[in-house]
Amino acid sequence: MTALPAKQGKTTARILLDWAAVITLLLCFVIFTLVKGRSFMSENNMINILRAMSITTVFGIAATVTMSTDGFDMSMCTLASCSAYVFVSMYLWYGLSLGMSIVVSILITLIMYQLTMFLILVCKIPDMLATAALMFVHQGLGQWYIGGGAVSTGMRLPNGNPPVRTTLSADFSAIGRAPWIIIITLVCVLLAYILLEHTRQGRYMYAIGGNREAARLSGINVKGYRYLAGMITAVFIAIGGIMVASRTSSAQVMNSDGYLMQSLAAVFVGRSVGGAEKPNAIGTLVGALLVSTLENGLTILAVPYYMLPAVKGGVLALALIAAYAGKKENN
């Protein structure tokens, strides 16, 4: 339902390029199925793909909301690591209920995001630079809180006290397993989709992203909505961090940091899906699905693990070339 402009004389080539990411995705499915048959196209493996996709998608959704206002956050995954430290420590060290641990983790993430917003909106530092600096701040603060080591079962607190809980409940682990991890992800995508496409606030965010000055002169409170976008981003960041912690049954040091690039890749691939021309929730889902399908299929094809990044990067680059090549605006 992204409002597709009824451009006259849209060429077949343009249509193909608009749907390049989806076509690539379908091609991957066809090729992997033809080559590997049931070992790829099985119910179990499809769930594998969806599960692998989940975390990338949630971080991608966080980035999508930021980018809808033409913002950018390089520090989202380092912040997610902090959310995970808080989440697991609340649960294990202090014995909070699972629900309360989640709530506290989201709240702390929101509080930490005030610093991001302060640097960007008050100090007016360009997003990219401010969040690059914040990556270090997050890493430092987070590790200071956990005392430099992981938060996992059987470990003592940094001050030597024993933890309140020594085991993780089934519910804790369920967050990181199918079907819940997939359900949570799809709910996140749906919420972001409704926010961006069907609410007034979402349209304002896109208006700001499309033309900040025109939005300002239309009477949109630009700073206010950039702040709101930041807060929503922070919630998705926390959810991502919690999912990572649950999946790894602990909060390992910097365990979310590595998701940044593939999440951004998912957003960039998704930007052009269906000719939307802006970061959008459904596109991000497609992008993340493409990334995880590739990874899964190539592994089944027994491509050595150390070759995976190169092949993955290559296919992503192709999808991006298809999406951005031949645009008049690019000069």
Binding site: A3, P5, R203, Y206, A207, G210, N211, E213, A214, A215, L217, S218, E277, K278
Partner: peptide, 13 residues
Amino acid sequence: RKEGVMVSENVAF
């Protein structure tokens, strides 16, 4: 084009 309308959005919006 820079300040009055959002050129990449549609007429209705």
